[in-house]
Design a binder for these strands. Structure first.
Ligand SMILES: [Zn+2]
Ligand SMILES: [Zn+2]
Ligand SMILES: [Zn+2]
Ligand SMILES: [Zn+2]
Lengths: 153, 153
DNA sequence: TGCCGTCACGATATAGTATCACGCGACGCG
DNA sequence: CGCGTCGCGTGATACTATATCGTGACGGCA
């Protein structure tokens, strides 16, 4: 399972990024991040809460939402709006910017969700916005369809 | 107020589109659509419910959600995922397709949300998906930033 | 050392969004 | 008339997210 290696690398990257930013990846926050990275699809806040309760019986909604806020602010995870769920950020090149252009591909059959960072899409969006005098700051792009695996099967 | 004229035109278009599709725009559904078109920003389901209750004291969540489902299925409105709110579709050219490529521009200052249909964005998205073997069916594109009015002010 | 501000987090309550399940009456059709 | 479908009323429930208060740990600074 190569995914395990990638997950651990992501955790190491995350700790490094927090160090650079002066942000504290506390045990609780790290544990929530681990839970998100361990899942193979986006995870809802209450699913995280349930899993968290195994270790921390006192965990409540604010516990997980505060951790999620931290992880979002530090660019370690993203929210998938269509699913009300959270997924780890795969971007490691630029040091987990607070916010970077990205898009999601969501498979309708298997639920797999992958993050891509296509600059042509980002450019087209910025251009379309500028054409009507709108200054784009951030864009949610969530593409539903059928992934390669499900398409051939 | 030219918007009023546009709204009435939208309602007429909506009725025509439903006739063509064999769908029934009942008084309740029409009223919900009117409420959505009357608002100058996207409206939440419970805001609609509150306004609906003025006329229909018995209205409950399923009342409005069923109407919203109908309007969504018939392409008369869209959901803005980032806001958990609904907005009228401005597309009248192709007869309110069940589903057409579109993008939203959401102003962070004034909350104004406008729908555009930029084919360059749609093409870039389809191309980016195809590049990784993904067949795009539908895409949510919600662009946050500053609108022309707020940018110059 | 003592004071103080900030921060992470526990704990309780509440707000906001969406769906389920049941039933009934209107309508269209054979 | 018998029957199926559909629109919608009604009550309950599930799911998602935030508000508020308190407390203990830590770090800066006289
Ligand atoms: Zn990312
Ligand atoms: Zn798939
Ligand atoms: Zn539209
Ligand atoms: Zn504005």
């Amino acid at each position: 399972m190569t995914a395990t290696i990638s997950r651990e690398q992501q955790l190491i990257e995350a700790e490094a990024a927090c160090l650079r930013r002066g942000a504290k990846l506390t045990p609780l926050r790290r544990q929530v991040l681990e839970l998100i990275l361990a899942a193979d699809s986006p995870v809802g806040a209450y699913a995280l809460l349930d899993r968290l309760k195994a270790d921390r019986p006192g965990a409540a909604p604010p516990t997980v939402y505060r951790a999620l806020d931290f992880l979002l602010e530090n660019g370690l995870i993203h929210k998938v709006e269509r699913l009300n769920a959270f997924i780890g950020c795969v971007e490691t090149g630029h040091g987990h910017a607070h916010d970077h252009p990205h898009q999601f591909l969501i498979c309708r059959r298997c639920g797999a969700t992958v993050e891509i960072a296509d600059s042509a899409v980002a450019d087209a969006i910025a251009a379309a916005a500028a054409r009507v005098g709108f200054t784009a700051v951030e864009a949610t792009v969530e593409i539903e369809g059928v992934c390669a695996r499900c398409g051939t099967a």
